[in-house]
Design a protein around this nucleic acid. Structure first.
Lengths: 139, 139
DNA sequence: CCTTTTACCTACTATGTCAATAGGTTAATA
DNA sequence: TATTAACCTATTGACATAGTAGGTAAAAGG
C-alpha cells in the first residue's frame, strides 16, 4: 500500500506542473488547494528538492517549481524516492544481501515478475499524463 | 512490500502441493524444512484453513493438506487472504467509503491501472506454476 | 536595516502493524 | 490413556507512518 508520503508527492507535482516550469509556487497555495498539513508537506518537499525533482527558493516570491518539463517525471521515479525501492520482497531490493535460499526458492521468479510488471507500469506514466488525464488503463 | 505472512503462506502451500492432495502433512515437517517458527505458522495455517484453502486434521496422522489441486490456487487468492486487499491505495479497497476527491482526483486512474496490472499478474500464476518453475516473467 | 515571507532543520509523539512468543485447550489416533 | 497435532487467546518488542512543535536560514520589499 502506497503511503501518504508518495500520494501527496504526486499531487504536489501535478499542481506544480499545472503552474508551468517558470513560476515559483509557495506551499501555502498547495496546502490550501489540497488540504494537506503544511508541516508534513514541507518534509516531503525537502526530499524532492534534495533529489533534484524541484527547485526551492526562500523568501517573498519564493516557493517551489519543477526542475524539468512534466513529461520527464515518471510516477516510478517519484514513488521510488518517497516509498523506497518498489520491490515486493526485501531480497529483490538493490541493497539486499544475497539470500541463501535464492537458488532453490520457488517463489523468487514470481516476485521478479511482479516487480517488473509494477515498475514497467509506473515508468510508463508521467506527471504530464496524470495532469492531462492521459492514463492508459491496461487492456 | 509483501509481509512474511504472505510469503510463508505461499511456501507452505508449495510444500503441501509437493505432497499431493491426499496425505496430511504435520506442521513439524514444514517448519523443519522451511525454518519457520511453528507458532507463527500455526496462525497462518488457521487463516488458510478457515478460508477453505487447506484442510486441517487433529491428532496422530493429522496435519494439513490442500483442499483442491494445486493449479486451482492463484497467488492472488493467497495474497489477498494474507495481506488483505491488494489495492495500492485505500480508496480502491472494497470496503472503502466513497472518496470526495474521486471525481477530480488526477491520480485515481493511475492507481486503478496499477491495481489491475498487479492483480492480473498475480491471478496468472498458480501454486502449481510455482512448484514446477513455470513462471512466465513478462516480456 | 528591518520586517515579512518562505524554505529548511531537528526533535518529539501517538498510533498501528509486523513478527513473533507464551501458554494453554480441543480433537483424533494408537 | 498417552501422545500427537491442530487450534485459541493473549502479550511483546521493534519499527514505520503521519503527523506536530518549535525553531533557523535566506531572500525580497519597504
Amino acid at each position: 500500500m502506497v503511503s501518504t508520503r508518495g500520494r501527496y508527492a504526486l499531487r504536489v507535482l501535478i499542481d506544480l506542473a499545472e503552474r508551468g516550469t517558470e513560476e515559483f509556487v509557495p506551499l501555502k497555495d498547495i496546502t490550501k488547494k489540497e488540504g494537506i498539513s503544511k508541516k508534513y508537506l514541507e518534509s516531503i518537499m525537502t526530499l524532492l528538492s534534495k533529489n533534484n525533482m524541484v527547485e526551492g527558493v526562500h523568501g517573498k516570491g519564493g516557493g517551489y517549481r519543477l526542475n524539468r518539463p512534466a513529461k520527464d517525471y515518471t510516477v516510478g521515479m517519484i514513488l521510488r524516492l518517497t516509498e523506497g525501492d518498489l520491490s515486493p520482497v526485501a531480497c529483490l531490493a538493490p541493497e539486499a544481501e544475497i539470500c541463501q535460499r535464492a537458488e532453490i526458492c520457488k517463489t523468487l521468479p514470481m516476485w521478479k515478475g511482479l516487480k517488473k510488471v509494477v515498475n514497467d507500469y509506473l515508468e510508463s506514466v508521467t506527471i504530464e499524463d496524470l495532469l492531462n488525464g492521459n492514463v492508459k488503463i491496461p487492456e
